[in-house]
Design a protein around this nucleic acid. Structure first.
Lengths: 135, 135
DNA sequence: TGCCAATCGGAACGATTTGGTCCGATTAAC
DNA sequence: GTTAATCGGACCAAATCGTTCCGATTGGCA
C-alpha cells in the first residue's frame, strides 16, 4: 500500500513541469536540477511518463518534454499508473493473470473490488493542477 | 499501489475466521485448509496479525487463534497495516525516516498527505464484517 | 553540406524487499 | 511425566525495484 520511489519522483517532476509556462520545452536535466531528483532517475521516470502519453517528447538538440494535456486534465491516478502500471490492489482484479489458487472459490474478491474502486476514485480526484499549487 | 501477497492472504484468512462462530479457537491448519492458502504462509500471516493485536493466540495443544475484536470493529486498513506496516504512500509521510533529498523544499508533500488520508479513509470504511459477507 | 553537441530511449547491473520454508519453544491433555 | 499439537521466530531463495550507463536520434552551426 505504498507507491514506489519512481512514482513518487514522477509526481514531483510532473508538478514542477506544471508550474512552468504551458507549451515550453523542458529537458530532463533542467527538471532534475530544479526538483533535486537524480538525473538518470529523472530520465527514466520521464521516459515512462512519455510512453504513457502524459508527456510529449522531442529528441535531439533543443528537444525535451512537454505536458501532453492541460494540468487540470491529468490526475494523480494517471501519473501513478504511468509508472507503476494499473492500480489494482490484488492481482486478480486486473483479470490478466490467473495464478491465484483461490480463483473461483474466493469470497472476498467482490468486496476488494469495491475497495479498489474507492481508492482509485480518491486518486483520480486529485488533479495535477492542484498538486502544482504553492501549498 | 498494490498490496503484497501476504496482505492479500491476510484478508482472506481474516474473512474466513470472521465467518466462524465468534469465540471459537481456530488453528492455522484449519483456516489454511478452508481458504486454500499454503499452511506455512498462513502461519506467518496469522503470526503477524496476532502481533498487531487483531488476533489472540494461544499456544500448545488445543491452542489456536481467535478474533481479538468483533468483526465490525476491524477495518480493512487495520488488516493491511498489520501485515505491511503503516499505510503511507510515501516514506516522508510517516516522518520516521528522513532520507528524502527533497526534504524541506518539496512542494507536493502537503498535497500527497491529503491524498494519503483519502486512501486511508476509503480503506477504513470497509469493515471485516462486510468482507465476510457471502457476496 | 558536413560536423558537433545535446537530448531521449533502452539495456544491464546491484541492492532491497518480499515470499516461502523449516525448526525450536511452549502448552494442554492424557 | 510423557506425548502430541500448536505457535513463534530465524533462515534462504526469488522477484522486484532503483540506479547507472551507453547507444540512437535530432537540431544547430560553421
Amino acid at each position: 500500500m505504498r507507491l514506489t520511489s519512481l512514482a513518487d519522483y514522477a509526481v514531483v517532476v510532473m508538478a514542477a513541469a506544471a508550474r512552468r509556462p504551458a507549451g515550453a520545452r523542458l529537458s530532463a536535466g533542467l527538471l532534475a536540477e530544479e526538483t533535486g531528483v537524480p538525473l538518470p532517475t529523472a530520465q527514466k521516470v520521464m521516459g515512462r511518463l512519455a510512453g504513457a502519453g502524459l508527456l510529449e517528447s522531442a529528441r535531439g538538440s533543443g528537444g525535451g518534454f512537454r505536458l501532453a494535456r492541460p494540468a487540470g486534465g491529468i490526475s494523480l491516478a494517471d501519473i501513478i499508473e504511468a509508472v507503476e502500471g494499473p492500480i489494482a490492489m490484488t492481482n486478480c482484479i486486473t483479470g490478466s493473470v490467473h495464478d491465484c489458487a483461490l480463483e473461483g472459490s474466493c469470497r472476498v474478491k467482490p468486496h476488494l473490488n469495491a475497495a479498489n474502486d474507492a481508492v482509485r476514485g480518491a486518486l483520480q480526484g486529485v488533479s495535477l493542477a492542484t498538486l502544482a499549487e504553492a501549498k
